[in-house]
């Protein structure tokens, strides 16, 4: 809750202003306005194809990797528009981490996976890396399970462990914000529960934006929820309000399971 962080300079970490996104000539996101509160979990929900993952990937400019994508409008990160053409997308990705739908560790050791972000940032002092790797693995609730086999291949971990490793990899670089793209959709219920608990703890340290297709998950872990439909944000409010007393008919139908 914002109220718990009065020291925060601004209560908004990110503000999306009139964002439109185009795949080629197809307009996928339409006039998106959204405020991501500092140190809160903001969830994006909506039926498949509503554009929630597309919106998430605007925040670290992942779309820049592929030709034919275009943005208009602004996403302000601490009052600076990160979609501006003169902002290097790498700078944005250095500040905003991401965890993907399917666990995607590198085919390297557990240690090297977590250390990679530091190596990219030119960190080469062994002891400093060791320390950060341990801290990141602890924060991702994985340290106790892997501390004796840090140099094993990451592929030998279970799916849930791999996803926590990916979270540790994102945490190691100390990002201001982490984007989660349906992080539990490839996991079993037990692994899902541990990831959800982790996300709840992490908001002490970072601002979190999460895409989920599970309404229950959004209800369990998020402070604010945006309901998206056909590329638009239909409603954005406190999670409790969205689920118990939504303003729009569409939102009500969706959260009550009448479509989606």
């Amino acid at each position: 809750m914002v109220e718990n962080h009065p020291s925060q300079a601004s209560k908004f970490k990110c503000e999306v202003k009139n964002l439109n996104f185009y795949y080629g000539s197809v307009r996928v996101l339409k006039d998106i306005n959204l405020s991501v509160f500092s140190h809160q979990v903001t969830a994006l929900i909506g039926p498949s194809g509503c554009g929630k993952t597309t919106l998430l990937r605007c925040f670290n400019r992942m779309h820049d990797l592929y030709p034919g994508n275009r943005y208009t409008g602004e996403i302000e990160l601490d009052k600076i528009n990160i979609l501006a053409p003169w902002i290097d997308p790498i700078e944005v990705r250095m500040r905003i981490g991401m965890v993907f739908q399917k666990p995607n560790p590198f085919p390297k050791s557990i240690y090297e996976n977590v250390a990679y972000g530091l190596r990219v940032r030119g960190q080469s002092q062994r002891s400093a890396i060791d320390e950060t790797v341990e801290q990141a693995l602890r924060n991702a609730a994985l340290w106790d399970e892997v501390k004796d086999r840090l140099y094993d291949l990451a592929f030998n971990l279970s799916g849930g462990q791999q996803q926590r490793l990916c979270i540790a990899r994102a945490l190691a670089t100390n990002p201001e914000m982490i984007l989660f793209d349906e992080p539990t959709s490839a996991l079993d219920p037990i692994a899902t529960a541990s990831i959800e608990e982790l996300i709840t703890q992490l908001k002490e340290k970072v601002t979190i934006l999460i895409v989920t297709h599970s309404m229950q998950q959004a209800a369990r872990i998020s402070d604010r929820t945006a309901f998206m439909y056909l590329g638009e944000i239909i409603e954005f409010d406190r999670t409790q309000t969205i689920f118990s007393d939504p303003t729009h008919r569409k939102t009500q139908d969706y959260v009550n399971g009448r479509f989606g």
């Binding site: 992942m62 981490g97 991401m98 995607n104 590198f106 990679y116 972000g117 990219v120 670089t173």
Partner: peptide
């Protein structure tokens, strides 16, 4: 090499060349 590996490296702030040199080529 699956795109998910390229995206993983990019999301950590690696440049394209770092992605190629540290991941694509070794794998």
């Amino acid at each position: 090499i699956p795109n998910s590996i390229r995206e993983a490296a990019c999301a950590l702030g690696a440049s394209k060349w770092q992605t190629i040199w540290d991941h694509i080529l070794p794998y």
